[in-house]
């Protein structure tokens, strides 16, 4: 199963800051969610290269839902 970066809490994807092919490091802010009237920075808990965006901007996601896959 492909590795994925997941949402840390339930909310709406406001900004996806990476696209397929982008490299990211552990701790990088890779997406911003909107939840509880706050901007929620999603920080990568791993390093890698983005393969496929799973959650588009505007999508509603649960806690733990995959945002994108990476290798």
């Amino acid at each position: 199963m492909a590795k994925t970066i997941k949402s840390s809490m339930a909310g709406t994807v406001w900004k996806m800051l990476v696209k397929p092919g982008d490299e990211f490091d552990i701790g990088d802010t890779v997406a911003i969610l909107e939840s509880m009237k706050m901007e929620i920075n999603i920080e990568a808990d791993d390093s890698g290269t983005v393969v496929e965006i799973v959650a588009a901007e505007g999508d509603t996601v649960d806690e733990g839902a995959p945002l994108f896959s990476y290798s």
């Binding site: 840390s8 809490m9 939840s35 509880m36 706050m38 901007e39 929620i40 920075n41």
Partner: peptide, 10 residues
Amino acid sequence: NSKHKGGVIF
């Protein structure tokens, strides 16, 4: 700490 999960209490 609003840097993480907006500082919301879980």
